[in-house]
Design a protein around this nucleic acid. Structure first.
Lengths: 129, 129
DNA sequence: CTAATTGCAAATGATTTGCAAAATT
DNA sequence: AATTTTGCAAATCATTTGCAATTAG
């Protein structure tokens, strides 16, 4: 893998963020510095990073993929309203521990624990009396 | 919700299957009996069933959604090669237990535990010496 | 009779890809 | 100089939607 400005900027936009950005969000951030970078390039590089194991791709129902540069095993809380994803510090529930190597004939590579719910920002604010 | 032939056939195609079919697979099955049913109708009904809680929708990285009529809490093993999804009998790992109601500000609705790996069918068969 | 449901086709939205030009080693 | 990477635009793929016709209650 060669070095390039767009690549470095894309990497920085994922690694520097704790927000699990989407490809479009990453694209926007990269463009602040390098306005000519295309969305296609963002996707190509993210895919590359995922394949080399540098970052992880998170899928959510009915939305864009999000990318996570924190490789430590941890769970996520997905907001079913806005799609936001928050980290759940390991240890809360069964989050920790590495998965078994085999399970029902499958060779297991990784374990994903995802909580679905409503984030604070989307919580229906009860009218004050 | 009214009754209709397409709806009944679509329901039967998900409920009768332990294979976590995709919308396209369900469509194919339904068409064996009712060849005029459109894919749009399949999607509309599946979405309806999901909203009423009759079935559950599973998302996988880079592929179609799959539908699961088994509502008991259980984990899934996703094949990263072919996309197939197998049930993981609860109790194997931390699969069981209902999630906490709140977590990091989120109101938690459900918990998804997904193992990623290679299914038996996709396993690279080691040449017999 | 009235409202829900359908088939069809067109629209959408995210992601991918072909290709010639530009950048990296 | 050889090869990778890019920008752009067009292509794909899954899913959704508008609408007039059909069907259920």
């Amino acid at each position: 893998m060669r070095h390039s400005e767009p690549r470095a900027a894309i990497r920085a936009a994922v690694v520097g963020e704790a927000t699990h950005p989407t490809a479009a969000e990453i694209h926007a951030r990269v463009r602040e510095q390098l306005p000519r970078v295309s969305l296609g390039t963002v996707y190509r590089n993210l895919e590359l990073f995922v394949r080399t194991g540098e970052i992880r791709k998170l899928v959510a129902p009915g939305g864009q993929a999000r990318y996570d540069a924190d490789l430590r095993p941890h769970a996520h809380a997905h907001c079913v309203r806005c799609g936001r994803i928050a980290d759940v510090p390991a240890g809360r529930q069964a989050a920790g521990g590495s998965p078994p190597r085999r399970l029902g004939g499958f060779r297991i590579l990784s374990l994903r624990i995802e909580y679905l719910g409503i984030c604070p920002g989307c919580a229906p604010r009860r009218p004050r009396t």
